[in-house]
Design a protein around this nucleic acid. Structure first.
Lengths: 110, 110
DNA sequence: TGGGGTAGTCATAAAAATTTGACTTATTGT
DNA sequence: ACAATAAGTCAAATTTTTATGACTACCCCA
C-alpha cells in the first residue's frame, strides 16, 4: 500500500479507511493489537494458517497506513513488537460496531 | 462471493462481515443505498470510473451477502432498484464509525 | 564455534479481483 | 418497424493479492 492502487479517495475518502483494515489477515492482526502490543511470533502462533510472508505484508501495510507501529524491544530474547498508534486507536470503534452486528442470519447461511 | 475463497470465519467470524463491505466499489454503493433505494443507472453516473461489469459484480455480492435487495420496479421506464435489507441497515453503524474518524493525519500523506 | 530463537527477505507461482470490449434482452416511444 | 433506454451477460486479458519454498541477519548461550 505504498500508493494505493485502487484509490477510492476521489469518490469516497472515508471508505478508503475501511480498506486499510481489509485483506486476508489485517483485521485479525488489528484485533490482537487492540488487546496490547503483539510480537511477530505471537501472531504466527495465533494465525497458524498464515505464512510469514503474508503476515509481514499485512504488518507492513498496517504500518504504512499509520495504524500500527513497529518497535524493536532490546530485551531478553530480542524481539519486535507491534502496537496501535493514535490513529490505530481511532479505528477501534469500527470494530466495536462490527461486534455489535447480529450475526445469526448470516452465519446460518454457511 | 458464492463461497468465500478467503474464509476468515474460522479465525475471525466478525471480520468476515467487514469483508462483505469491501472491494473496489462495494463501500461506495453501500453508502448510496443508505440514502435510499438506488438504480443501476444512477450508480453508474455516480461512479463514472466503474464499469458495468464491476458494478454488477459488486451488486451481486452485496445481494448474496444479504445486504442489498434487488427489485424490478414496473413503472414509467421499467427499472431496477437496490435497497438495504434489514441486515444491511445493521451495517450502518460501521460506516458511522468510519465517518467519525479523524482523517487529517491520513489525508496529509496523499 | 555452533546451535537455536526471532524476525525477517527474495523470487517465483498460483489464485482472486478487476477491466475490456463486444454482445443480449426486454420494454417503450414515434 | 425502428431506435433508444435500462440493465444487464460473456469470454478474455490484465492487475492485484496471496502462497510457496529457499535463503538471510542478528543476537544469545554453552
Amino acid at each position: 500500500m505504498t500508493t494505493p492502487k485502487n484509490d477510492l479517495t476521489l469518490h469516497c475518502p472515508k471508505e478508503y479507511l475501511l480498506k486499510m483494515l481489509t485483506g486476508k489477515w489485517k483485521p485479525c492482526i488489528f484485533r490482537y493489537a487492540v488487546q496490547g502490543p503483539v510480537r511477530f511470533s505471537q501472531i504466527m502462533k495465533l494465525l497458524p494458517e498464515a505464512t510469514r510472508q503474508a503476515l509481514t505484508n499485512a504488518l507492513r501495510e498496517l504500518e504504512e497506513s499509520g495504524i500500527l507501529e513497529r518497535t524493536v524491544v532490546k530485551l531478553k530474547p530480542l524481539h519486535v513488537e507491534y502496537h496501535l498508534t493514535e490513529l490505530g486507536i481511532e479505528f477501534i470503534p469500527i470494530f466495536k460496531a462490527v461486534e455489535e452486528l447480529n450475526l445469526l442470519p448470516v452465519m446460518q447461511k454457511n
